[in-house]
Amino acid sequence: METIPLEYFLGLSAILFIIGTIGVLTRRNAIIIFMSIELMLNAVNVTLVAFSRYMNDPAGQIFVFFVMTVAAAEAAVGLAIVLSLFRNKQTVYVDEVNIMKW
């Protein structure tokens, strides 16, 4: 445990967060954008658990618990939005949905 520095976990989490960011910015399939958001949430969870472990504070793990709950709620609502989008426009590609574009 003591052999792995905290910075290694933070670095791993930063790399995963950036991969998620690039996914959100470059893909056009709404479901893959959604999965990239999950990647970013999980990257932050790694940071929280690592700090919780190294500072011996359980608040980090409790917070991860709540983040997961919010992610589950977000999954339900987000996929319902994708479903109703597909029902109305017959597409899940975000660049073909421009009804709200000004």
């Binding site: 959604f34 999950e38 658990v49 997961m68 996929l79």
Partner: peptide, 30 residues
């Protein structure tokens, strides 16, 4: 590795078990 056993179990149950099943289900539905 970080000795957060409960979080590891919840990760598998909630993310891999529940959320991803929902995502795959929607992909197949569409």
């Amino acid at each position: 590795v970080l000795q957060a056993q409960l979080i590891a179990v919840i990760q598998v149950l909630v993310y891999a078990g529940a959320i991803m099943v929902l995502v795959v289900f929607v992909i197949m539905l569409l």
